[in-house]
């Protein structure tokens, strides 16, 4: 009876080992597909794997996250990467990339909390990298106090991100010095002189064009009024168009300030994200 039990246990053990061995082999195949940049195919193979061992589950999650990251599907990528356990050799990489993905998707607080919970042991380069990433995340959230605290630890000793450290400090300065323009002031300026609001917003060419359009239409309307009188159809049409142009210019100036501010912030965010990305790719090739 005991012998039978031992045999059945052995059989079950081999059954499981064999299944997990096939998962391991499929993971090697996934790596091969990834090396050929066949992302859709790798994802298809991964989705059909039933890993039971922790190390295999970690690998499946890691590859899932990595493929999604390459497909620029950032939030699902972060979700998979966060499931990689601390026993995996890919743990630190997964956490750092998950945090980066979340920062890129605008979830700066979550990105920071992922980095804050990351225990790196005594690897000075990884500690410096995490500090750098947290500084980047703070800057993305426009948390200047947090950034200056983190940037105090920038040593410039690590070639992989020394330049990026300097860049972040420069971006922080540029962001702080960003001119605070008001949409209301732009609107008022355009009401006084058509196009002036746009020049105030920083769109000089648009401002001059706006002035010429409104001015030309106003001149034409005045011409019609002078020769044909106020009840003439041509004057009414021309004056209405001038009015629309004039009001549109005021509205456009107010919007231009907001648009310019958004453009500036977007550009700065892209630069910060770019600089946060380079060391990750350099260190975890």
């Amino acid at each position: 009876m005991i012998r039978a039990f031992v045999f059945v246990c052995c059989a079950l053990f081999f059954l499981n080992t064999s299944a997990q061995e096939s998962v391991r082999r499929e993971l090697a195949f996934v790596r091969h597909l990834l090396s050929r940049n066949e992302l859709k195919e790798s994802l298809f193979v991964l989705e059909r794997l039933q890993a039971k061992e922790t190390s295999l589950i970690d690998s499946v999650n890691y590859y899932h996250g990595w493929i999604r990251y390459q497909e620029k599907d950032l939030l699902p990528s972060a979700a998979f990467l966060l499931q990689v356990s601390s026993e995996s050799p890919q743990f630190v990489k997964s956490r750092l990339f998950a945090s980066y993905n979340m920062a890129h998707a605008g979830l700066v607080d979550t990105a920071d909390s992922v980095l804050a919970r990351l225990h790196l042991g005594d690897s000075p380069v990884l500690q410096a990298l995490t500090n750098f990433e947290r500084a980047g995340v703070a800057l993305l959230g426009r948390n200047y106090d947090e950034f200056s605290e983190r940037s105090r630890d920038f040593s410039g000793d690590w070639n992989a991100f020394a330049l990026q450290e300097r860049n972040l400090v420069e971006y922080a300065l540029t962001l702080k010095q960003q001119p605070g323009r008001s949409p209301a002031v732009a609107g008022l300026l355009s009401a006084a002189v058509p196009g002036l609001g746009k020049i105030y917003a920083g769109k000089t060419a648009e401002g001059i064009a706006g002035f010429l359009y409104v001015g030309a239409m106003a001149l034409a309307s005045w011409d019609f009024y002078r020769k044909l009188g106020s009840s003439n159809g041509l004057f009414i049409v021309s004056a209405s168009i001038t009015g629309v142009f004039y009001l549109g210019n005021i509205w456009g100036s107010a919007v231009a300030v907001r648009r310019l501010r958004n453009e500036f912030n977007h550009e700065m965010d892209q630069r910060i994200l770019f600089d946060m990305h380079i060391p990750l790719r350099n260190i975890f090739q």
């Binding site: 045999f7 059989a11 081999f14 059954l15 064999s18 299944a19 061995e21 096939s22």
Partner: peptide, 12 residues
């Protein structure tokens, strides 16, 4: 039983 369990795994 042993052989069936080990070799009737379709994934292998």
């Amino acid at each position: 039983i042993f052989l069936c369990a080990t070799f009737f795994n379709k994934e292998k």
